[in-house]
């Protein structure tokens, strides 16, 4: 028996909104420690890794570890019926072929339940190595969204370079070119939300497809901050930590010289 109850049900809704553009169906691996998901986009360019800790839920019970294969677009449709302040309960039997969603309004005056059929999904699992990244930038999640959306007007590929002057996002396309540089401002009186922290061991310059970054940026409603971790010739890690709940990480393969 699996049962998880979350007062801040909206978090589940936001997590699915942040995944469904990239992943159509995925296994939610449930165990006594929580819920994990790892899935690639259909082009196998990026990898999403979700972790939701059991302690992050108001109630969490999982008697047997198992994968719950779910179509994310169906799940997103069901979650449209969940209101902002609703309490969400997820339930599945050990040998069942469905997952149950229950949405309760805060005042307990409306209760909805939905059942979704589970799917058998053959998913490839990757071992993600612990990487000692050469540069880490932590900034406002909404500011990162803004940069990705604004720069995509000009081109498809962004060059991200971290140097002593800050982190520069550059795009060039048929219309022209654009650069946005964000500087470390931890020494000034910047308010917490707008802080930019740049931790650089050595300069890094890598190219990435903007459309994936724009999809990753859909996770911004989950939290205030995002971290970008870069090293030469390895995937970019874009990590959204969700306080007391878990994290949503995205890995994006760089563009490489032929």
């Amino acid at each position: 028996m699996f049962e998880a109850r979350l007062t801040k049900g909206e978090l589940i809704k936001k997590v699915i909104e942040a995944l469904k553009d990239l992943v159509t169906e995925a296994n939610f691996d449930i165990s006594a420690t929580g819920i994990q998901l790892q899935a690639m986009d259909s082009s196998h360019v990026s990898l999403c890794a979700l972790q939701m800790k059991a302690e992050g839920f108001d109630h969490f019970r999982c008697d047997r570890s198992m994968p719950l294969g779910i179509n994310l677009s169906s799940m997103s449709k069901v979650l449209k019926c969940c209101n902002k302040d609703d309490i969400v309960t997820l339930k599945a039997e050990d040998d069942g072929d469905s997952i149950n969603f229950m949405f309760e309004s805060k005042d307990q005056d409306k209760i909805s339940d939905f059942e979704l059929k589970l799917m058998d999904i053959d998913s490839e699992h990757f071992g993600i190595p612990d990487t000692d990244y050469k540069a880490t930038v932590t900034m406002s999640a909404s500011e990162f969204t803004r940069i990705c959306n604004d720069l995509s007007i000009l081109g498809e590929t962004v060059a991200i370079s971290v140097g002593k002057d800050g982190v520069r996002f550059s795009v060039s396309g048929e219309m022209g070119t654009g650069n946005m540089t964000v500087r470390d401002n931890t020494s000034s009186d910047t308010k917490e939300a707008d802080r930019v922290e740049i931790d650089m061991e050595e300069p890094v310059n890598l190219n990435f497809a903007l459309r994936y970054l724009k999809s990753f940026a859909k996770a911004a409603p989950l939290t205030d901050r995002v971290s970008l971790c870069l090293s030469r010739d390895v995937p970019l890690l874009v990590k959204y930590e969700i306080p007391e709940f878990g994290s949503l990480s995205y890995y994006l393969a760089p563009k490489i010289d032929d």
Binding site: H44, V45, F126, P235, A253, K255
Partner: peptide
């Protein structure tokens, strides 16, 4: 000229 690499190139299947 640049091309898009795949994520499996970097992570071992496990």
């Amino acid at each position: 000229k640049q091309s898009q690499s795949k994520i499996s190139r970097f992570f071992a299947a496990g």
